[in-house]
């Protein structure tokens, strides 16, 4: 269970998150929608432990643990996974090496042995098949020269491999064509179960057509201005953000 209360965060003394309240129970899928610059990625980064952001007020707990006391890698070991809006390139490091290192870091934390190279390959190939990725991905440098869509697919591959309990997906749908979107969404749906929490950050309703959220939140200027069920996304698609933003100024 993720519980965020009155979370406020700033970067370089500029306030970006201005009091976020959000809780996600195991098994739930929540969507956060909002215009560009509203603070969606900031929220994702703050949850994941990026140090450039200062938390000025509020709390965030996952599984009863105060996240602000943990470093980014410790949060990852707790089961938090962020699929990045802009995954970075790491020249010279093969994707295979990264995937294996990440999995072994997790295993080490769990007190397990490093995975055997052959076992690893068979597991990763099985996941890649689900995402329609061919073997060449493994031997390319991490995200180097990947198209936007390839990068997103690679993020989901890591998600499938690491099997986190809290998945934060930051605009995973952007940069994907319609076929790729369907494949990636199917991959994410496979991860849905009664224990796992998923937070989908998106701009558009189209991802939500594939992955039906339990709750939709609308974020504007660092605050959640509206909440509802899936129909909120449909309404948003039809009317745009404007009515919600006005509602905020009105009340």
């Amino acid at each position: 269970m993720l519980t965020i209360k009155n979370l406020q965060a700033s970067i370089e003394d500029k306030a970006i998150l201005k009091g976020i309240h959000l809780s996600i129970k195991p098994g739930e899928v929540h969507a956060i929608m909002g215009p560009n610059g509203s603070g969606k990625s900031t929220l994702a980064n703050v949850l994941a432990g990026r140090e450039e952001y200062q938390i000025t007020a509020g709390t965030m707990h996952y599984q009863g643990i105060d996240l602000s006391t943990l470093t980014a890698d410790e949060r990852a070991h707790l089961g938090l996974f962020l699929s990045f809006q802009y995954p970075v390139e790491i020249p010279g490091v093969s994707n295979l090496y990264l995937l294996k290192s990440a999995l072994n870091a997790k295993r080490k934390h769990m007190g397990l042995e490093e995975i055997d190279a052959i076992d690893f390959l068979s597991i990763v190939r099985e996941k890649m098949k689900l995402l329609h990725m061919d073997d060449s991905y493994l031997y390319r440098d991490v995200n180097s020269g990947f198209s936007g869509g390839e990068k997103k697919r690679n993020e989901i591959l890591q998600l499938l491999l690491l099997e986190p309990s809290l998945c934060i997906l930051d605009e995973t749908d952007s940069g994907l064509d319609i076929d790729a979107l369907r494949i990636v969404a199917e991959g994410i749906n496979l991860m849905r179960n009664e224990k796992r929490s998923i937070l989908l950050i998106t701009h558009y309703q189209r991802l939500l057509d594939y992955i039906k959220p339990d709750v939709v939140h609308i974020l504007s200027e660092g605050k959640i201005v509206a909440e509802g069920d899936y129909t909120l996304a449909t309404q948003l698609e039809a009317e745009g953000y404007e009515p919600f933003l006005q509602k905020k100024t009105g009340g």
Binding site: A48, A72, D73, R75, A76, F84, V88, I90, L98, A105
Partner: peptide, 14 residues
């Protein structure tokens, strides 16, 4: 870059 370090940290790598 901080971006690279954060990315890897997020994947559980110290």
């Amino acid at each position: 870059s901080e971006d690279q370090l954060f990315y890897l940290a997020q994947r559980g790598i110290d």
